[in-house]
Amino acid sequence: MDLIKDIKRNRLKHRQKEPLKKDIFNQISSIVKRYELNKNFLKVLDGVEDYLSNVNLNANRVRVKASMESPLFSLVTKDEYMLTISIIKKIGNSYLKFAYSPEEILLCGPLFRLNPSLTPENLERYHFETLFLHERVKADNKEHDEISNRSIEDT
């Protein structure tokens, strides 16, 4: 009886449709194609930390995440392929497949460094700039609390 049940369960499992998993190459190559990115983008990616330290991001600003439907299978030219692979290698974290625009690709690294355990729902829903500002404020507050606690203890 157990064997029959087991076979039935297995068959049912195989019959179920599995959603196609998001492929990081399709996602990034579609952004590269859509925004016509070129090699210069890699230079911007290298200097993103300097850029973020200089630029004054408004904490009250809430960016709307751009909607994007990446194709199931993406084929690109040789240059676009090289650039896509370079971006994937350079960033190399799990947030990248939730980036919907070049700006979000740039913020992938800093955001991951601030909080590597963001949920896929949040990454899918909010713009990376909003998440980054939120995490940065959280980190600043934490730092501030630690300093004040330490000063209380000292006194």
């Binding site: 190459f25 084929l75 690109v76 030219t77 040789k78 392929y81």
Partner: peptide, 10 residues
């Protein structure tokens, strides 16, 4: 025609 790429093609 110029060949288009994806990781499997490569």
């Amino acid at each position: 025609m110029p060949l288009l790429f994806d990781p499997e093609v490569v």
